[in-house]
Write a protein that binds this DNA or RNA. Structure first.
Length: 597
RNA sequence: GGGGUCGUAGUUCAGUUGGUUAGAACGCCGGCCUGUCACGCCGGAGGUCGCGAGUUCGAGUCUCGUCGACCCCGCCA
């Protein structure tokens, strides 16, 4: 039977009571976490987002009967007196374990069906079940922690940027499809048949227009939408701290962001060191095989082409002669590895696309290795020296097209470090990756495309050869990387309309198209645009790292599955044909609707 | 778009070469218990083996299709 809350008001939360409250009459409201029925003595652990408190029903037969009827996840009101537990009944595992509330009255405010999984147990439910009953999953302490952390981080971000003179301005969610980039989510217009809004991939153009509008320092914690396939750290809608600054240089942006990261990490009680390390894109790609190196471990990729250019080992010699490279990584203390372990590395390298992987070591001064006969001891000794390998180390070598070799060794490096337990979550390796190319060649479309986005300023020294050597131009773009994860990216923008038109021309975005798609922006640029630049920080990924959570889903209250479904709400879903009529839309594909689950 | 792993009780899983009545743990229901806190003890209920075809005397098990979850590649300015 369900009873009324009536005039009962909560006096304390379930995490609040301590020995100092003994003797106090309290009213607690929460969920029955666990019920322990000992006959004429019943314990109920009452839970809210602040903690657990033990309720005790005894002596009063009617009250004990009422407590016996309570089931998991019932919502109850508890009225009683705080009492100190006997010394042998104290629970040191609970913050409230020194006391209990001896019930005078117990009201069941809401009954609950038996939950599909136990809230009291951590994990032990499939993603599918958790997502379908997200409101139950979110009741679990771990998820509550994540929600709280997220709240505190966004609060710290707002405080910090406010103190720095930034203004939070909201930009439209119903906006216009932006050029290039990811696939847009589209929203049909009812009023304008056949026309569509797009949900923002980022508020890029709007924040630049805010600079033109004189906002000077803009920040927004904002949802962004990209209709691309999902990953463990990627959701179709995600949150950014979007930042734009007038009269900005790279140094100014870096300083502001480093300050923001300092405040964010203070939320979890950590002091970080700034300024952050910087590395060129070229170095990152060559020495770590990725544009987001995880610098918690060393093991950079060494180029050993010179050592093998004239060697007797024809595979490596020929690779160098035909424009390839011989590169390697030094595995610290790898010399003791068993043959089985090394064979596994070779297999792994092949699985990553390598034609082979050679290894060299000299544990007791004697050179050993898979290519000892072919390359000779002197050459291998030179290779060990050039790579900086000492006797306890193992040198792994591969040859081929330089970028491909580095990519493979980069993946091998991460895998080795992970297996060795050297990627510790408590270590923090921040890195600015800079000097990105301005353009990439799109072989399929046979044209240049922006590596960052088309509003990114080229470096001044590249302006003269933009048209003659677009592939060699560098962008004033930067990414912020933390522990191998890209947590931010931005650039100094183009503020000169003439240069912006040149870039569009190079991207083969015709005048007509440019005018149609963002003519308003080109026009705005003509009215006195301050030099400006900014960045967007990935809130979800930052929270992931702070919380030590791996799937990004676990730091988002209502995430989507890898098939971009909301299993709780059941979206997307077919709509009433009348809605489609109003929107002037006729569908071609037949919607399957939610699966037959 | 491609590749991989998985789908069996409310939940998490086991299930041998295709063979009688599909098991375990937790949860759930009932009983006993005044100091439990993952309470304990006794008893019980609970299954469209994701869905649909096919092979077979016989399918949880094999084949094909389909739906869904997860991970990776492509994609993600």
């Amino acid at each position: 039977m369900v009873e009324r809350l009536g005039t009962l008001a909560r006096t304390h939360t379930c995490g609040a009571l301590t020995a100092g409250d003994v003797g106090t009459e309290v009213v607690l409201l929460g969920w029955a976490h666990r019920v322990r029925d000992l006959g004429s003595l019943v314990f109920i652990d009452l839970r809210d987002r602040y903690g657990l408190t033990q309720l005790t029903a005894r002596d009063d037969a009617a009250l004990v009967e009422a407590a016996k009827r309570v089931r998991s996840e019932f919502v109850v009101a508890a009225v009683g007196r705080v009492e100190r537990r006997a010394a042998d009944a104290v629970n040191p595992k609970m913050p409230t374990g020194e006391v209990e509330v001896v019930l005078r009255e117990l009201r069941v405010l809401a009954e609950a069906k038996t939950p599909p999984f136990q809230i009291a147990e951590d994990a032990a439910a499939s993603d599918e079940t958790r997502l379908r009953y997200r409101y139950l999953d979110l009741r679990r302490p771990r998820m509550q922690q994540n929600l709280l952390l997220r709240h505190r981080v966004t609060l710290a971000v707002r405080r910090y940027f406010d103190a720095q003179g930034f203004l939070e301005v909201e930009t439209p969610v119903l906006t216009k499809s932006t050029p290039e980039g990811a696939r847009d989510y589209l929203v049909p217009s009812r009023v304008h048949p056949g026309q569509f809004y797009a949900l923002p991939q980022s508020p890029q153009i709007f924040k630049q227009i805010l600079m033109i509008a004189g906002v000077d320092r803009y920040v927004q914690i904002v949802k962004c939408f990209r209709d691309e396939d999902l990953r463990i750290d990627r959701q179709p809608e995600f949150t950014q701290v979007d930042v734009e600054i007038s009269f900005a240089t790279e140094e100014l942006v870096f300083g502001v962001v480093e300050g923001a990261m300092r405040e964010i990490f203070r939320v979890v009680g950590r002091e970080i060191e700034a300024p952050f390390r910087r590395m060129s894109y070229q170095e990152a790609m060559a020495r770590y095989g990725t544009d987001k190196p995880d610098l918690r471990v060393g093991m950079p990729i060494e180029d050993l082409s010179a050592v093998f250019a004239d060697s007797t080992f024809d595979v490596f010699r020929d690779a160098v002669a035909s424009g390839g490279a011989v590169r390697g990584i030094v595995v610290p203390d790898g010399a003791r590895s068993s043959r089985r372990v090394i064979d596994e590395l070779v297999e792994q390298a092949k699985a990553l696309g390598a034609s082979g992987l050679a290894w060299v070591r000299a544990p007791d001064g004697t050179v050993q290795g898979s290519i000892l006969k072919a390359a000779g001891e002197a050459t291998l000794r030179a290779a060990l020296d050039a790579a900086g390998a000492t006797s306890p180390d193992l040198l792994l070598l591969a040859a081929g097209e330089p970028a491909a070799v580095s990519r493979m060794l980069g993946q091998l490096r991460l895998s080795i470090a992970r297996k060795a337990g050297r990627l510790k979550p408590e270590d923090l390796a921040f890195l600015w990756v800079v000097d990105f190319p301005l353009f990439e060649w799109d072989g399929a479309e046979r044209r240049w495309v922006s590596m960052h986005h088309p509003f990114t300023s080229p470096r001044e020294e590249d302006l003269g050869r933009l048209e003659s050597a677009p592939g060699e131009a560098h962008a004033r773009a930067y990414d912020l990387v933390l522990n191998g994860s890209e947590i931010g990216g931005g650039s100094i923008r183009i503020h000169d309309p003439e240069l912006q038109r040149t870039i569009f021309r190079l991207l083969r975005i015709g005048d007509e198209e440019a005018k149609e798609r963002f003519g308003f922006f080109l026009e705005a640029l003509e009215y006195g645009t301050p030099p400006h630049g900014g960045i967007a920080l990935g809130v979800d990924r930052i929270i992931m790292i702070l919380a030590g959570e791996v799937p990004i889903r676990d730091v988002i209250a209502f995430p989507k599955t890898t098939a971009a479904l909301d299993l709780m709400a059941g979206s997307p879903s077919p709509v009433d044909p009348r809605q489609l009529d109003e929107l002037h839309i006729r569908t071609v594909a037949k919607a399957d609707g939610p699966g037959d689950r």
